[in-house]
Design a protein around this nucleic acid. Structure first.
Length: 884
RNA sequence: AGGUGCGUAGCUCAGGGGAAGAGCACUUCCUUGACACGGAAGGGGUCAGCGGUUCAAAUCCGCUCGCACCUACCA
């Protein structure tokens, strides 16, 4: 048998992935039987390549999908990518900038062509990375948000919402990025603390020599002031009510208004009102019907409305305004003041709030059913507290600005008549104006916010608005797995759109995965230089190792400090699995894999030995736990528990215990042992497959199996009747005795290879049991002989020890370290004494005896008595040793 | 300002009302024919602090301290 000593992922991953894909194992078929189970993959942006967050997200989805597929469900996992408007446009713009070019130099068409070129490359790269992670998604259904089909869905939704009055166009204050030269939504603004200044400016009161002092962090906006406001109840300023201000520098009269939005305690309690450049002021302006003066333009420079400051950059204008005020004696004082400044999430430029004509979705009516759906549990968040995050935002939702002044995205399906100005919103480009019949129509140049198309993803990808078989079978999807950072951006909007256009929630469960951080818990970022490239990790450690690591660390909703050293531990686990398989391959008698009936027969035939009944029982536990944990999306517990089962039960004990029998000269014994071992291994591989698909497939194929692929085999279901309490207890006893003997040997520095004589005294019952397992005692504890309840013959030195049920002596014919032995005994005695004391106290308490459940009291008493007895024994041994 | 989460072994983290867990690191020993990406054994924790509920609290509740994050907004 040609099987390498160490698992080499590179040799198997590509091979199996290609086989799976080419055999069509990933393909969904709406016409097949089985309960549908679908997931749409959160589409990665075509901005670059996958990061660890994607690796986590994709791994978890694949685990769920492979598990459900093996359970026999009718599975669809639909992959794809997102055009990511601003982000992708920025990437290409940056490349142009390197050649000293701007997109305006190219024009819209040529620029778009360039972005498409980029997209093709990025997408190909991303999809191949997704493959490398072992993802079993249906590639025949791969979608891209700018695909023809999806674009059709976008248009359809836009038109329907417009016709329903839920989309409107108007002049409002929006967040504007002067660098990207586009509007961005509230969610795309990051606030950062900035050490700024608070300028106190004297505003002359009209018709008097009085001055009113206002405080501002943005003096340049005063050029656009159209009022000054005070709180209506502020006694200090009652005399100002109804008066006017002569706005300095601009020398125009503006009213003093009263409005409760003014905070009396901040600054001077008098605030300048600039409806054109501040969200609060904009609203105040609407309340008081103030004119809007736009002094800062879309390029971040002062407009003609700024008079003498026109053409200056907004920051240059600030300096000039301050200088001019100072020279006129109108600057009362300057304080340093730290405050939050909004910046563009994509390019970090300070955002300029400004009034412009934009498209909006009226969102209240859409939000209501989406709130209700979660409130009624039609969609459930895991962990559950994220529903609070969702509610909080949904209940305070603002209209959604969906237009972007970009070139990369879905062009808004609105046309304007160049002749009469009529606007037409339509599914197909109108050939002429419906009002004046002119054929000089021009399409709206704005594109839609990326999230507008992403919001349709769960159904647009399945062919909506056509009534496709996919939609019928696979919508709503079962599960969405995504990060908390896009609950508002994406999850909430999919909820709204799904309910509106499909009349049902887009997914039953939203599992929120955590953020991947570095080992020190720092966010991974290029600027910190702590980014780990998942594909590089895959090359170094293998896909299975990274997948298992991510699964083990995936505690729902909490961040994951990704640790390479920890992953090395899970690579070792893969290697362990490999070698367990290798061991069987090298030692099995040639037997076919026993089927379920044969195993049932064997189990009830009474031929199975302790270790076999035990491991079959433990296997059922593992099966049950894995299924239960996956059901609850507890990936970390599912995988951790499998790790423990496979390594520390199956490998450490079971495989060790069957070695002799596997190699037994007695053919029947060897065959029986082989059969059970085959079975245990085969089930374990199936159990592990969703987590570590490659190594399990490779071993499964090499070992006795039936069927074309482990990924198509059935997922193990527990057989509770194979959980045999007696074998588990007996096994524990055996393990305890073996471990105690090993400990005694190790601590007294007996040569580990030396077979030694042993003597055990215990109850008749225990003796009978241990006698039946004598071969195991000998091989695992390195004993030459075991005698029971008889005085040891021979006069060698003795090491003594005990467990709950036995006392033992190991006979040596050479000197040994008695002091070490005494030390060991003293330590054990001290430890036991503490325990026993604590238990004794508990048992003294009448409250405990009366109120604690009977089985707890019983268990406590048992432990107490065992402890006492052990303590007595140990003290005797110590005394004997000290005497010698 | 409001909210959420976290503080458990040297490090990174699970667990969660009835005997402290994992990976890595550490100590000692072992190249015995699955595996040194290994085996055996071991050291190491008043589970942030203070109070409360309970027969029983690392676990539930309250407060304090420290650390993250989210939302809102600060003229």
């Amino acid at each position: 048998m040609d099987i390498p000593k160490a698992y080499e992922p590179a040799l198997v991953e590509q091979k199996w992935y290609r086989t799976w894909e080419e055999s069509g194992y990933f393909k969904a078929d709406p016409s097949r039987s089985g309960v549908p189970y679908s997931i749409v993959m959160p589409p990665p942006n075509v901005t670059g390549s996958l990061h660890m967050g994607h690796a986590l997200n994709i791994t978890l989805q694949d685990i769920v999908i492979r598990w459900r597929r093996m359970q026999g469900l009718n599975v669809l996992w639909l992959p794809g990518t997102d055009h990511a408007g601003i982000a992708t446009q920025n990437v290409v713009e940056r490349q142009l900038a390197e050649q000293n070019l701007h997109r305006l130099d190219l024009g819209r068409e040529r620029f778009e062509a360039l972005v498409w070129e980029w997209k093709e490359k990025a997408e190909a790269n991303i999809l191949s990375q997704i493959r490398k992670l072992g993802s079993s998604c249906d590639w025949s259904r791969t979608r891209f948000t700018l695909d023809q089909g999806l674009s059709g869905a976008v248009r359809e939704v836009f038109v329907r919402l417009y016709e329903a009055g839920l989309i409107y166009r108007g002049e409002y204050l929006v967040n504007w990025c002067p660098r990207c030269t586009t509007a961005i939504s509230d969610l795309e603004v990051d606030y950062r603390p900035i050490d700024g200044k608070l300028w106190h400016i004297r505003y002359p009161l009209k018709g008097s020599n009085d001055l009113v002092v206002v405080a501002t962090t943005r003096p340049e906006t005063m050029l656009g002031d159209t009022a000054v406001a005070v709180h209506p109840d502020d006694e200090r300023y009652f005399h100002l009510h109804g008066r006017k201000i002569v706005l300095p520098l601009m020398e125009r009269d503006i009213p003093i208004i009263t409005d409760p939005f003014v905070e009396k305690d901040f600054g001077t309690g008098v605030v300048k009102v600039t409806p054109g450049h501040d969200p609060n002021d904009f609203e105040a302006g609407q309340r008081h019907h103030l004119p809007v003066v736009r002094v800062i333009g879309e390029d971040g420079k002062m407009t003609v409305e700024a008079g003498p400051y026109s053409g200056l950059d907004r920051y240059a204008a600030r300096n000039r305004v301050v200088q001019d005020l100072e020279s006129k004696g109108l600057l009362a004082k300057v304080e340093s003041h730290s405050h939050n400044v909004g910046t563009c999430q994509r390019c970090e430029t300070v955002v300029e709030p400004l009034v412009s004509k934009q498209w909006f979705v009226r969102v209240k009516d859409l939000a209501e059913p989406a709130i209700a759906a979660v409130a009624h549990g039609r969609t459930v968040f895991i962990p559950e507290n994220y529903s609070r995050v969702y509610f909080e935002w949904m209940r305070n939702i603002h209209d959604w600005c969906i237009s972007r002044q970009l070139w990369w995205g879905h062009r808004i399906p609105a046309w304007y008549c160049k002749k009469c100005g009529e606007m037409i919103v339509a599914r197909i480009e109108p050939s002429h104006c419906s009002r004046c019949k002119s054929d000089r129509m021009e399409q709206e140049s704005d594109v839609l916010d990326t999230w507008f198309s992403s919001a349709l993803w769960p159904f647009s990808t399945m062919g909506w608005p056509e009534a496709t078989a996919d939609l019928k079978v696979y919508y709503p999807t079962q599960t969405l797995i995504t990060g908390f950072d896009i609950i508002f951006f994406w999850v909430a909007r999919m909820m709204m759109m799904g309910l509106r256009f499909m009349n049902d929630v887009p997914f039953r469960t939203v599992y929120i995965n955590g953020l991947i951080r570095d080992e020190q818990g720092q966010k991974m970022s290029k600027s910190r230089g702590n980014v780990i490239d998942p594909l590089q990790i895959v090359e170094e450690y293998g896909t299975d190792a990274i997948r298992f690591t991510l699964a083990v660390m995936a505690v729902p909703g909490t961040d994951i400090p990704f640790s390479v050293s920890r992953m090395a531990g899970y690579r070792a686990f893969c290697n362990k699995i490999w070698n367990a398989g290798r061991f069987l391959l090298l030692n099995l008698s040639a037997v076919p894999l026993p089927d379920a009936e044969e195993m049932d027969r064997l189990y009830s035939s009474g031929q199975l030995r302790l270790e076999e009944r035990w491991i079959l029982g433990r296997l059922q536990h593992a099966i049950r736990d894995t299924n239960e944990n996956l059901e609850k999306f507890r990936f970390h517990e599912a995988s951790n528990q499998l790790y423990h089962f496979f390594w520390h039960e199956l490998c450490d004990w079971y495989l060790e215990l069957i070695k002799a029998n596997l190699a037994a000269k007695d053919k029947a014994t060897a065959v029986l042992t082989s059969k059970v071992a085959c079975y245990v291994m085969e089930v374990s591989l199936r159990l592990l497959h969703p987590f570590i698909p490659f190594i399990t497939e490779e071993l499964w194929q090499r070992l006795p199996h039936s069927g074309p692929s482990v990924m198509l085999s059935s997922y193990p279901r527990p057989k509770p009747q194979w959980i045999d309490g007696e074998s588990i207890e007996q096994m524990e006893e055996l393990q305890e005795v073996i471990t105690a003997i090993r400990t005694a040997r190790a601590e007294t520095s007996v040569d580990p290879r030396k077979k030694i004589e042993s003597h055990i005294s215990c109850s008749e019952e225990a003796a009978a049991f241990l006698k039946s397992q004598e071969h195991h005692l000998r091989s695992l504890a390195q004993l030459s002989s075991v005698s029971f309840n008889a005085e040891p013959h021979g006069k060698g030195l003795r090491i003594q020890g005990m467990t709950k049920t036995v006392e033992f002596a190991l006979i040596l014919d050479e000197s040994l370290d008695f002091e070490a032995d005494r030390d060991r005994l003293r330590r054990e005695i001290a430890r036991l004494q503490k325990d026993v004391e604590k238990l004794g106290q508990k048992l003294q308490s009448a409250d405990f005896l009366n109120r604690a459940p009977a089985e707890v009291v019983q268990a406590t008493r048992q432990r107490y008595e065992d402890g006492l007895e052990q303590l007595r024994g140990l003290q005797e041994k110590l005394a004997a040793l000290s005497g010698s």
